[in-house]
Amino acid sequence: MPETGQSWQRTFKGLPDQARAARKWARARVEHVDVEQVLAELFAAVLGSGPDLITVTVSTAGDRVRLTAVGPEDLPARLTHGPGHRIIAALSVRSGVTADGCGLWAQLTTETT
């Protein structure tokens, strides 16, 4: 049986106070205990590059949730592997840098073991 899912995308201003709005927006789309924390770390990392705008995408497929935060410029290594990277890695099953190098993503699972 094929998996079905949904995807939502919203662009936020590149300001620290927008992180809260982004977290709440993502949480309203998926129910997962770690969505807000992981998105906060993704957003903070991209925010560190000083963008005017940050685009957040929330996608679901089957038991997977993928969160992505992307800015307009390449992220330096200090932002892709900074302190928040450990939190993202601990709370997600997979994570990485977007193909264009301008953002970060994390995959969560709703599967219970």
Rank of each mutant, 00 (worst) to 15 (best):
M1S: 08
P2K: 10
E3G: 05
T4Y: 03
G5T: 00
Q6Y: 00
S7C: 04
S7N: 07
S7G: 02
W8S: 00
Q9V: 03
R10D: 00
T11Y: 04
T11R: 03
K13P: 02
G14M: 00
L15G: 01
L15Y: 06
P16R: 12
D17Q: 12
Q18L: 00
Q18Y: 04
A19S: 10
R20T: 09
R20N: 10
A22Y: 04
A22T: 02
R23E: 15
R23V: 00
K24Q: 15
A26S: 07
R27D: 14
R27E: 15
R27I: 01
V30L: 07
H32V: 01
V33D: 09
D34S: 13
D34N: 10
D34K: 04
D34I: 01
E36M: 12
E36Q: 14
Q37P: 03
V38H: 03
V38F: 04
L39V: 02
L39K: 01
L39A: 06
A40N: 15
A40C: 13
E41I: 00
E41D: 09
E41F: 01
F43T: 01
F43K: 05
A44C: 08
A44N: 14
L47P: 02
G50S: 01
G50R: 07
P51K: 04
D52T: 02
D52I: 03
D52K: 10
L53G: 00
L53P: 00
I54P: 09
T55R: 14
V56D: 12
T57C: 08
T57W: 07
T57P: 06
V58G: 12
V58A: 08
V58F: 04
S59G: 14
S59A: 15
A61G: 12
A61W: 06
R66G: 03
L67C: 08
T68E: 14
A69N: 10
V70C: 10
P72R: 04
E73D: 14
E73S: 12
E73H: 12
D74F: 13
L75V: 02
L75S: 12
R78T: 15
R78S: 15
L79I: 01
L79K: 12
T80I: 07
G82P: 13
G82H: 15
G84E: 14
H85T: 07
H85F: 13
A89K: 13
A89H: 12
A89E: 15
A90I: 02
L91A: 08
L91T: 05
S92Y: 07
G96P: 01
V97S: 11
V97F: 04
D100M: 08
C102Q: 14
W105L: 05
W105D: 02
A106W: 09
A106Q: 05
T109L: 11
T109E: 10
T109N: 03
T110Y: 02
E111N: 06
